[in-house]
Amino acid sequence: MRLNFGILKRQKSPIPGFGLTMGYTVFYLSIIVMIPLIALFTEAFSMGWQAFVDATTNARVIASYKLTFITSLIAALVNTFFGLIVAWCLVRYTFWGKRVFDAIVDLPFALPTAVSGIALTTLYSSQGWFGQILQPLGIKVVFTPIGITIALIFIGLPFVVRTIQPALEEIQIEQEEASASLGASRWQTFYKVILPTIFPSLLTGFALSFARALGEYGSVVFIAGNMPFKTEISTLLIITKLEQYDYAGATAIAVVMLLISFVMLLLINILQRWSSRRRGMEAI
């Protein structure tokens, strides 16, 4: 072996090109992803512990964490509930327009976030289709945390549906038959047989939707109004700090958010392993 990548030692394989492809992979990964991320952490370290703590714990920043966390949590919960219903209908029932609805679930993935942002803001503004209905009821959506939550529901929905769908498809009818023949009602079968089986996928979908919401910017920034302490999410605060040339402040908040993302990523990986193991057991 001409090239040696330390931990990336290969076993003998007759297929050529390992050195070339692995070399390029590591090189490209390093310049595009690893070095920039390392730069971020180095920048945060070089500002000193006290400055870092001050930048990440001042009242305005804490308010933005709270807002981001709570709106993301509510959005992920709403998505988990409705996502389960949507996935259930798409897997179990046939109805008019099913294929179109199945395809449209991915719209938030494909539609640029800025476009979703202005469309939602227009819809829920006082002259918009939904705003006109909600305004007389005393519900103000635009420039409030409710608006932020709606934008986060929009972008997080596909994660939940696309995680639950395969899990529902894999459930074997025999299990439900066994449950029913032992006298369980349909609700009992759902609650005691189906739900425990898909639970890991449900949790994974929730975590993916939540993680995406935490870092979202484009779809939220238009509808949020961006008032400090009230409707200013953490990603927006990073941009504000950058525009004020407060690079250290922006970096510090970014590092906190990135660490939270990494924890979420780890959790999602563990959840996915759990759910594939559970599904593996079903197959036996």
């Binding site: 931990i7 990336l8 030692k9 290969r10 076993q11 394989s13 297929i15 390992f18 692995m22 992979t25 990964l29 992803v33 690893m34 920039p36 991320l37 730069a39 971020l40 920048e43 976030t113 993680a211 935490l214 870092g215 979202e216 910017y217 484009g218 990603t235 990073i238 941009i239 950058l242 690079y247 922006a250 970096t251 970014a254 958010m257 990135l258 993302s261 990494f262 979420m264 990523l265 990986n269």
Partner: peptide, 30 residues
């Protein structure tokens, strides 16, 4: 090929999806 550290490498490749878009821009500013 099979090699040690494969799943770690896959995680690293997936990493940009876990990073907020705003931070993805910030790293290049830094």
């Amino acid at each position: 090929y099979s090699f040690f550290g494969k799943s770690f490498l896959i995680t690293l490749i997936d990493l940009p999806f876990a990073v907020s878009p705003v931070i993805s821009g910030l790293v290049y500013v830094l």
